[in-house]
């Protein structure tokens, strides 16, 4: 059962084409993440689904209904903004109930629904505060509350965690995943943080310059990237990618190998390089090698791997883990 269908969607700002012929299906209950570099059109695409931006051509179907020309409020969607966009002059209670109050619902109904929503997000004790008096994480939860109470068919998130610090971000990642499991609703989530994409998504859509580069589950993208772009985008540290003579020797256009798929040894291997820089992360050690042809090789070794700057060591790709593009 599909929840959101995009058919040949395009968007131009003046003469600049920002979204180029996108086709996409999101299944009901899926957690779908749009990733891509800054300016590739993620927000624009999300805003087109929400109706805040009109599409230049194409068709948008939500829950079987063509909403291409529908008003944002009539699409059965709810959106959580990067800035949270809480109404500063209203209390948490009024913020969450704003949509219902606009729709002219009776006061008692609004009150019960707001309280139930606040309960589920541990906001009950904050209901009479103004947004100014809340922490970043609490504001985030109010914004989510405002979305939940609409009981939408699709939740839209535009980089909702980017204003939070690292610890809070990982906590909110879990909360959002739990929320998704509990509500079973379709969620579309924009981020440029590949960790968020990998940890939360059922389906990742990699965008590049207004086009879909690849769609798939996190592990599909990790194991079988279709292009150097996707390969470079998913996984950290980035995959080593080589063109030119090195790639030609491997009979391909671009040759790639992930840092975690290189075995370092003092005795022998495919490439011999000089250690330029070492990052000790505790569990892992990331080693940067200088190599006359490859220029730089990045490899991930166990945390206690013994190596020093200036050492000459060998790197060996694991068989079956190499990537050959075009």
């Amino acid at each position: 059962m599909t929840s959101v269908v995009l058919k040949d969607i395009r968007k131009s700002f003046g003469s600049l084409e920002v979204i180029k012929a996108i086709d996409l299906e999101v299944e009901k209950g899926e957690f779908c993440v749009f990733v891509g570099p800054s300016g590739c059109g993620k927000s624009t695409l999300l805003r087109m689904i929400s109706g805040l931006e009109t599409s230049t051509s194409g068709q948008i179907v939500i829950d079987g209904e063509d909403v291409t020309h529908a008003e944002p409020s009539k699409r059965g969607i709810a959106m959580v903004f990067q800035s949270y966009a809480l109404y500063p002059h209203l209390t948490v209670r009024e913020n969450i109930g704003f949509g219902l109050s606009l729709a002219g619902r009776p006061k008692s109904e609004i009150a019960t629904k707001v309280e139930k929503t606040a309960e589920s997000l541990q906001l009950a004790h904050l209901l009479d505060r103004k947004p100014k008096a809340l922490s970043g994480g609490q504001r985030q939860r109010v914004a989510i509350g405002r979305a939940i109470i609409r009981n939408p068919k699709v939740f839209l998130f535009d980089e909702p965690l980017s204003n939070l610090d690292a610890a809070l971000r990982s906590q909110m990642r879990m909360e959002l995943t739990d929320l998704h499991a509990k509500l079973g609703a379709t969620m579309i989530y924009v981020t440029h943080d590949q960790v968020e994409a990998m940890t939360m998504a059922n389906k990742i859509v990699v965008l590049n310059a207004g086009r879909i580069e690849q769609v798939g589950s996190p592990m599909e993208l990790y194991n079988n990237p279709v292009s150097p772009f996707v390969a470079g985008f998913i996984g950290s540290p980035k995959m080593n990618l080589y063109e030119g003579e090195v790639a030609a020797a491997e009979r391909c256009g671009t040759y790639g190998i992930r840092p975690e798929h290189l075995i370092l040894s003092k005795s022998g291997g495919k490439w011999r390089g000089q250690v330029r820089h070492i990052e000790r992360l505790g569990a892992d050690t990331v080693v940067y090698l200088d190599h006359p042809e490859l220029k730089q090789i990045v490899a991930r070794a166990p945390g206690d791997f013994e190596v020093a700057s200036g050492d000459e060591i060998y790197a060996m790709p694991m068989s079956g883990k190499e990537h050959r593009f075009g």
Binding site: G51, T54, S55, T56, S57, T68, H69, E71
Partner: peptide, 8 residues
């Protein structure tokens, strides 16, 4: 070009 009512 699809036109929609502006909120302004």
């Amino acid at each position: 070009m699809v036109t929609q009512k502006s909120p302004y």
